[in-house]
Each structure stands twice: as C-alpha cells, then as structure tokens.
Design a protein around this nucleic acid. Structure first.
Lengths: 189, 189
DNA sequence: GGGCTCATGTAAACTGTTACATGATTAC
DNA sequence: GTAATCATGTAACAGTTTACATGAGCCC
C-alpha cells in the first residue's frame, strides 16, 4: 500500500490537484514513485474518505474548477507509522534486462537498438534531474544545501533517481559496446 | 507480459523445474526479474499450453517427482519477437524512497534505521553478485570473458544488478550521513 | 518431535494498466 | 480547424501478492 503513502509524501510540500499530481507521478518526471492518473484520482478519493487528506474546491475562470488537496494531521501520523515499518526490498523489473538476458539467442542488431534507445531516455532523465536539483538548491552548493536546507527529502530522492539513470545509461553503453565488438569479431572471422 | 519472456529467458541455459525457477526469481538472487513462486507455476502451465516450453517428468527417489522445462523453437521465436518491441521504460518504485521523500516530516532516527537496513541488504547482494560474476567468468578477466565468452547475457544482467545495488548502498549511506549530521547540528543548537 | 527443504498447486485479495468518456480553453 | 492542455472520472482487464493446502524426507 505504498501508493497512498507516496501521494501523502507528494502533498507534504504543497497543495495539489489530482491533475497536478499526475504530472508529478509521470514517467518523465517521477523520481520516487510512478503511477497512472487513474490510480491517483482513485487514491485521492480514498484518502479523503479516510480523512488523511482534505480537498477544497478552487473555482477558476477559463479553466475547469479543480480540487486542491493537503495532508491532514491524521495523514501525517499515517506517514509516520508507515516510515516505522521495515521497507520492502526493491528490485529491478525491467523488460530490457529480460532481452539482454536472452543475448546470444536473439538478434544482436535488435538488442543494440533497444540499448541505444534506453540510453538516450536515461540521458534525458539525467538532464532533467540535474536541472531539478539545481532548482531546489538554488545558488548553494550541494553540501551546503544538504547541511542547512529546510526541505531535503525531495532533493535526496532526486539524487537517487539521478544515480539510477546514470547507472542505466552507463550500463546500456557498456552492453551495447560489448555486443558491437563481438559482432565485429564475428563478421571478421 | 514480460513475465513469460523472463521465464523463457531463464530457461535458455538449462532445463529447470518450477521449484528451481522460484529460486532463480527469488528476491535474494534475481538479477533481471523478480516473481513469486505462484506466478511461476501458473506461467509455466500457460507456457506449456501455448507450446512455448515443454516439460518432462523426472522421477526421483527420496524426493517428490518434478517436471523439468525447456524452451521450444516456438518459445525462442516468441523471445525474438519480444526483443524487437520497444522496451518499456523502467522506473524505481521503492517504499524507502517514499519514506525519504517525507524526511523533515517524519522521525529522523527511524529513517536512519531504514536506510541502514537497506544498505546492509544491498551490501549482501553486492557480495552475492560479485561471487556470481566470478563463477560465470571463471579465471578469465571480465574484458576477456565479455569478448570471447560463449554466453554473456546473464553476465551482463548481473552487472546491471551489481551496479544497481552499489547505487542503493552508496545512496543509503549518503542519505543516512546527511540526516545524522543535521540531527547532530540540531541537537547542538 | 519440530523445523527446514523439496515440490506443486488453488483461491482470494490487492495493485496497476488500458480503454473509454466528457468538455472547455489556448496555441499554431 | 486541429492539436494540446486543463480537469476528472468509470469500467474492464492484466498482473502481483498473500493465504491456504498437501505431503514426503532430512537434520538436530
């Protein structure tokens, strides 16, 4: 049931609408959890029923009205309780790894194409996370910000996301290089 | 539907029983996919019905009989087809990141405890993956093995697993150190 | 005798994804 | 006018986890 806690954690800093949440949990942006819009709208409804968040209607001209949600004291207590539980170990579950596991049994060109795509995607996220981190720390150095900044949670999770995408990119490049070299060697034989 | 392809990829190297597969897909060992035993037994049944694997009964003394499965030509074709599809981007979905996102709103001691646990878990996997890699390459160097080894898929995925756990450990240590220092600074004020 | 490993499953509950639906405004 | 963005949902389906069930042999 971490989705509900992820939503609570996302609402700690600011009031957000369901729609704004979907942006934060989007694949392209998410640095600590990913979820579909439909999950988020449903979860917000449940969270409000359970009294862990409260919503208030904001009437807008030119745009549809929206409901902004914030975490209640009960919600904060729930998060505190969740944090005390042992975290489940996380694991990689990745299409691309399945494909690479089958290397030597599937077409090498195709595999290299997949690795190249992923590498580019990872690079895009590296750039994005770099910008995000810069925005959060402003003109302070990272050390300085982490020592004295008032809100470091999102910064720390973003650092993890950055390292993860670095790992992705470097591994994709390495694997593609290995496959290319073997292919070359084979052709020359 | 990557689970079925993960199972096919796992069966490429050797005939395995459902039980042996559950060991390979176990959290403690898995380096390219994770799944519950119940998923694997169900998937094997479906794969056999679809003709992508074949099972043969092995009668054992002292132990219950088992069924060993291997990939058919149709299964190999299915894997080839799967590899040609664009891989879905993978994302982190991790309890611990949710907890860290909420840092500054939840108890720091508790959070440090979670980070320390995860770090130890990651270290255990680092050790395990190191041993696994050594077993696969034998007395060859990594470069040598990746250039000329006959089966490099599992080696490459294991390298990814290793890098992932390195990332986990280093980040946990970093985050815990940051939180400890801030806590110290706060206490001294 | 109690707990662990081998070996395989069924069933229910929960979580996540995909498709469909609506409707106004803004940018090209 | 066509597509994108804002804004929120329902419903069906697919995938994952947890609980329950069975039974023999092995080790202490």
């Amino acid at each position: 049931m971490a989705l509900r806690h992820a939503v609570l954690a996302a609402l700690l800093d600011e009031e957000l609408s369901g729609y704004q949440l979907t942006k934060a949990f989007d694949l392209g942006v998410a640095n600590f959890w990913h979820a579909q819009p439909q999950q988020l709208y449903a979860e917000l409804t449940r969270l409000e029923q359970d009294g862990l968040v409260t919503g208030r209607e904001v009437v807008q001209d030119n745009r549809p009205n929206k409901r902004l949600f914030r975490v209640t004291d009960a919600g904060l207590a729930e998060l505190e309780h969740f944090t005390a539980l042992a975290a489940k170990p996380s694991f990689i579950r990745d299409d691309l790894l399945v494909k690479v596991q089958a290397a030597d049994h599937v077409d090498t060109e195709t595999l290299i194409a997949r690795l190249t795509e992923r590498s580019a995607f990872a690079q895009a996220k590296i750039d994005l996370f770099g910008r995000l981190l810069h925005t959060m720390r402003g003109d302070r150095t990272e050390e300085e910000f982490l020592r004295h900044g008032e809100r470091i949670g999102p910064y720390l999770t973003c650092l993890r996301g950055l390292a993860f995408e670095h790992g992705n990119r470097d591994w994709c490049e390495r694997a593609a290089a290995v496959l290319r070299e073997r292919q070359g060697a084979h052709v020359r034989n």
